[in-house]
Amino acid sequence: MAKRDYYEILGVAKGCSADELKKAYRKVAMQFHPDRNPGNKEAEEKFKEAAEAYEILSDQDRRAQYDRYGHAGVSGNGRPGGFGPGAGMSMDDIFSQFGDIFGDDLFGSFFGGARGGRAGGRARGVRGSNLRIKIKLTYEEIASGVNKTIKVKKYVPCQTCSGSGAKDKSSVQTCPTCGGNGQVRKVTNTFLGQMQTVSTCPTCNGEGTTITNKCTTCKGEGRAFGEETVSIDIPAGVQEGMQLSLSGKGNAGERGGAPGDLIILVEEEPHPSLHRDGLNVAYDLYLTFPEAVFGTSVEVPTIDGKAKIKIPTGTQSGKIFRLRGKGFPAVNSYERGDQLVHVNVWTPQNVTSEEKAMLEKMAESSNFQPRPEKSEKSFFDKVREMFS
Rank of each mutant, 00 (worst) to 15 (best):
A2G: 11
K3E: 14
S17T: 05
D19E: 13
L21F: 06
R26N: 09
A29R: 04
M30Y: 13
H33F: 09
P38F: 05
N40I: 08
E44G: 06
E49A: 08
D59F: 05
Q60Y: 10
Y66V: 01
R68E: 02
A72P: 09
V74H: 03
G76Q: 14
G78P: 03
P80E: 06
M89R: 04
I94L: 12
F95N: 07
D104M: 11
L106I: 04
L106K: 01
R118I: 09
G120V: 06
R122W: 13
V126N: 02
R132F: 15
I142C: 08
K153M: 14
P157I: 01
C161H: 00
K169L: 15
G180W: 01
V187M: 14
F191T: 10
F191Q: 15
G193S: 08
Q196C: 11
V198K: 04
V198D: 14
T200G: 05
P202R: 09
G206Q: 01
G208N: 00
I211N: 00
K214L: 14
C215T: 11
K219W: 06
G222W: 03
F225L: 15
E228C: 07
G241T: 01
Q243C: 07
L244K: 05
L246K: 11
L246I: 13
E254Y: 04
G257Y: 05
P259F: 08
L262H: 14
L262R: 08
E267I: 04
E267T: 03
E269Q: 01
E269D: 03
R276S: 08
E291C: 04
T296W: 03
T302R: 00
D304A: 14
K306Y: 11
K310P: 02
P312D: 01
T313G: 02
R324C: 05
V345P: 01
E355N: 14
K356V: 03
M358R: 13
E364A: 15
S365V: 04
S365G: 09
Q369L: 10
